[in-house]
C-alpha cells in the first residue's frame, strides 16, 4: 500500500488504480470502476443528442424524401400509362381515318368511273345516231345521184341516138327517138 502511493507520487500523470506509474493500463481498463460514471454520463448525453438529431431532423426528412420519390415514381408511371393509352388511341384513330379515306377514295373513283362510263355511253349513242343519220342521208344522196345519173344516161342516149340517126342521113322525129330510147333502156 505504501509503495503504491509512493509510485503514484513519482509519476505526475498516474492518479488511479487502473493506470500504473508509467501511464500503462493495469489489467483491463474495461473493468476499471473509476471511469464508469464518466462514460455512462457522456454516453447518455450522446444517445439523447443522437436520438434528437435522428428523430427530429434526419428521419422525418428522409421519410418525406422517400415518400416524395415514391409519389413521383407512381405519378410518372401513371402519366406514362396515360400517354401510352393516348398514343394507342390516336393510332387507332389514324388507322380509322386511313381506312375511311381509302374507302372514300375508292367510292369517288368508282363514281367517276361510272360517270365517265355513262357519259361515254351517251356520247356513243349520240354518235351512233349521228352516224346512222349521216349514213341514211348519204344513202339518199347516193340514190338521188344514181337516179340523176340514169336520167343523164337517157338524155345522152337520146342525143347520141338523134346524132347517129342524123349522121346516117335520116331525119328523125325527136319524140320517136326519145320513145325508142326509153323503151330500149327499159327493156
Amino acid at each position: 500500500m505504501a509503495t503504491e502511493t509512493h509510485g503514484a507520487e513519482n509519476a505526475a500523470a498516474a492518479a488511479s488504480a487502473c493506470v500504473d506509474s508509467h501511464g500503462s493500463a493495469v489489467g483491463m481498463p474495461q473493468l476499471c470502476g473509476e471511469w464508469i460514471g464518466n462514460q455512462v454520463f457522456w454516453l447518455v448525453i450522446t444517445l439523447v443528442v443522437i436520438y434528437l438529431i435522428l428523430a427530429k431532423i434526419a428521419l422525418p426528412r428522409i421519410a418525406s424524401v422517400l415518400a416524395e420519390r415514391q409519389g413521383t415514381i407512381t405519378n410518372d408511371i401513371a402519366a406514362a400509362e396515360e400517354l401510352k393509352r393516348k398514343a394507342e388511341e390516336s393510332e387507332a384513330a389514324y388507322q380509322q381515318a386511313l381506312a375511311d379515306a381509302r374507302a372514300q377514295a375508292q367510292a369517288i373513283a368508282q363514281k367517276t368511273r361510272d360517270d365517265i362510263k355513262a357519259d361515254l355511253d351517251a356520247e356513243m349513242a349520240k354518235a351512233d345516231e349521228a352516224i346512222s343519220a349521216k349514213a341514211a342521208e348519204s344513202e339518199k344522196a347516193i340514190s338521188a345521184i344514181r337516179a340523176s345519173a340514169m336520167e343523164n344516161v337517157e338524155i345522152v342516149a337520146k342525143e347520141t341516138a338523134a346524132a347517129l340517126v342524123a349522121a346516117l342521113g335520116g331525119k328523125a322525129d325527136d319524140a320517136k327517138i326519145a320513145n325508142a330510147v326509153s323503151n330500149r333502156l327499159k327493156g
Partner: peptide, 21 residues
Amino acid sequence: MDQFIVKPLFGHGDVGMFTIT
C-alpha cells in the same frame, strides 16, 4: 490495453463523472 485507458482531455488529474475525457 493502453488504448482503452480513459484520461482527461485537458490537464492531468482524476476522472470524475463530468470530466471531459
